[in-house]
Design a protein around this nucleic acid. Sequence first.
DNA 1: GAATATATGGTACGACTGTTTCAACAACGA
DNA 2: TCGTTGTTGAAACAGTCGTACCATATATTC
Lengths: 186, 186
Amino acid sequence: MGRPADPARRERTLARATDYVLAHGLAGLSLRPLAAALDTSPRMLLYDFGSKQELVAAVLAEARRRGAVRLAEHLPAETGSVQERLRGIWAWMSADDRAPFVRLFFEVHAEGLVHPEAYPDQGEAITDWFSTLNATFHDIATGPDDTVTPTLIMAVVRGLLFDLTTTADRHRTDQALDRFAELLGQ
Amino acid sequence: MGRPADPARRERTLARATDYVLAHGLAGLSLRPLAAALDTSPRMLLYDFGSKQELVAAVLAEARRRGAVRLAEHLPAETGSVQERLRGIWAWMSADDRAPFVRLFFEVHAEGLVHPEAYPDQGEAITDWFSTLNATFHDIATGPDDTVTPTLIMAVVRGLLFDLTTTADRHRTDQALDRFAELLGQ
DNA sequence: GAATATATGGTACGACTGTTTCAACAACGA
DNA sequence: TCGTTGTTGAAACAGTCGTACCATATATTC
């Protein structure tokens, strides 16, 4: 008996908190401004999530979930030559509307370098790509368990994303990816 | 007249503060713990540097200076095939004793993504490599002003550094660089 | 109505932050 | 010794932080 619980509230808050973090970043995140932007209170944030740490963990999980959904919507459509597939992945990952995800991704990585113990499953963000990329580029992989090809491809993509987010030089980074695509397609 | 100034004190403090930041990172930097570790006081840090922001700027400049010195000591010795030169650069940048620099580098990049206005000259950290790398890899560059080849090479290095600092998988990242070196050397 | 469980608002605590203020001390030239 | 300039300590200021505490409001069953 008693008043029924409202789990939807936590979900709504989580969704809006994820929007907020994607827009404002992780580093300076603070409960009071966050609560104000979400039309709630620090009191309720802690009531729903227990602590700031757990809230951040929930937000990062939600952000990963959203990214995975977008990836699933995109990657299966990839066909054509190695160059076309590679350009497709780059176009998708470097698209302007993915910039908040990319920024959060780099932010979490940097934070994990300083506090490795707080982000124990960060290696998965790297290795999760192996199977997907191996399927997409099976024709140039050395075998079904090839990890080197996906490692190199993602290194190029991440390295160029690093460059692009710093210099905003779209033309030069696009050209560099084309050069790599040529090399990879023999 | 009066007591003579002691500019050496600021230099000593700057050197030790740079050590501290390289060891502990930029994100959680705070004057009181820093001062305690440096056997000085927040009062003196502000006396010497004016504000925390200026202190951080001085520390980052000093860290860049140290990195440039090490680079100058290393790169001129690069000869041999494209593969050998590329492996040399990778070996140098991914060496364990450079990890603090790499970490700080990623940290500053992430911070710059959230507060672009506070790090106005960050693009130079990317473009500064062009002339040096063009000299080192002149035989595969498309011309004296080729920016695409250095962009791709540094993207691979940074992307693999990203991977290596996250997964600590030295073998796989080394192999990926070798694969790239093969592709680049025809 | 009472009882009960969830949901909130308000407030304050203790610990931190960068910075300022005030006072004192130290080393020099005159 | 005195004035002057550089150096330094102690303390306080004004703010923010995550969080805990206490009361109250709300929605439900009995």
